[in-house]
Write a protein that binds this DNA or RNA. Structure first.
Length: 235
DNA sequence: GCCAACGTTGGC
DNA sequence: GCCAACGTTGGC
C-alpha cells in the first residue's frame, strides 16, 4: 500500500525551532527514504525534553498548572498526544472521514471528560497526536495529526438540540468544554493495532506505562516522546 | 452484546 | 468528604 503523505515535510520543517532545521540536514541526505522512514528519523532525533511526562503527572491537577508547565517548556518542546476517535457506530469519525474533511482538518470537539479536557487545554500548535480508532474491530493508530488551533470554546455544549454534546450546566459566560483543531499530516501505511501495541506494554517493554493501557478510558492523553517514536517505528 | 473499569452524581 | 448508585467507555 502506498504511503500517503499530506504536507508532512512542511509540518516538521516549519517548526520555529532551530533544532528542527538541523534535523533537515540529517534526514535528507539519504534522499531515498520513504515518508514513513522520514517521520521516524525526524522524531528519533527530536528533542526528548518535552513536557509530556510532566503532563502525565499533572493529569489530576488544575488546568492552570498544566498550562504553566507548557508555558515554561514551550521554547524547547513539541509535545505528543493520542486522540481517540470512534471507529464504529453512529458517532464514528475515522481516518477516512478526516481525509475527506476540508483541508483534512477537523475540530476536535465533543470531549466531555474533565481530564481529557485538561489535556486538550495543554495542546499547542505544532504539537502532534496519534489518531486512534477505538470501539471497533482492529482498534489502533491510523494516522498522525498536528494541532493547528489551540483550545477554544466548544460551541456544541450550548446546543440543546444536540443530545450528545449539550451540557445544561454550561453557559457562554462559564463554558465547561473546549475544542482544538487538528490537521492530518500522515495516514499510516497500515494501522498499528492495539493488539500489536499491547505486546510492548509489558513490564520492561518499550511501551510500559503508556496511558493507553493504564488509563484506558482517557480519550485525550499525553504520550511520552519515546513512546510516540517507538510506535511510529512500527510502520 | 457483555461486562470490567472507572468517571460522575448526589444523598448524607 | 465519603461512597453507593448510576452512566459511559471501550476491549473482547
Amino acid at each position: 500500500m502506498p504511503v500517503v503523505v499530506l504536507g508532512l515535510n512542511l509540518a516538521f520543517l516549519n517548526q520555529a525551532n532551530p533544532f528542527m532545521v538541523s534535523l533537515r540536514k540529517r534526514v535528507h541526505p539519504a534522499g531515498r527514504q520513504n515518508a514513513a522512514q522520514r517521520v521516524s528519523a525526524t522524531l528519533e532525533g527530536a528533542r526528548t525534553k518535552t513536557t509530556s511526562s510532566e503532563l502525565e503527572m499533572a493529569l489530576d491537577r488544575s488546568v492552570e498548572k498544566i498550562r504553566k508547565y507548557r508555558l515554561g517548556a514551550k521554547k524547547f518542546a513539541v509535545a505528543y498526544y493520542l486522540l481517540k476517535s470512534e471507529g464504529f457506530g453512529p458517532r464514528k469519525f475515522t481516518i477516512d472521514d478526516l481525509v475527506a474533511s476540508p483541508l483534512r482538518s477537523t475540530s476536535w470537539d465533543g470531549v466531555r471528560n474533565f481530564q481529557a479536557r485538561n489535556v486538550l487545554l495543554s495542546m499547542q500548535t505544532g504539537d502532534f497526536a496519534l489518531f486512534y480508532h477505538s470501539n471497533c474491530k482492529n482498534a489502533g493508530v491510523t494516522g498522525i495529526v498536528e494541532v493547528v488551533k489551540e483550545a477554544y470554546v466548544d460551541e456544541t455544549q450550548f446546543d440543546s438540540s444536540n443530545l450528545d454534546a449539550y451540557d445544561s450546566k454550561a453557559t457562554p459566560e462559564n463554558p465547561r468544554w473546549y475544542a482544538v483543531d487538528v490537521k492530518l499530516q500522515l495516514r499510516l501505511p497500515r494501522p498499528i493495532t492495539l493488539e500489536e501495541l499491547k505486546q510492548y506494554a509489558v513490564p520492561g517493554g518499550p511501551l510500559e506505562g503508556m496511558l493507553l493501557f493504564t488509563r484506558a478510558r482517557l480519550s485525550v492523553q499525553p504520550v511520552r516522546p519515546e513512546h510516540f517514536q517507538f510506535i511510529l517505528r512500527q510502520m
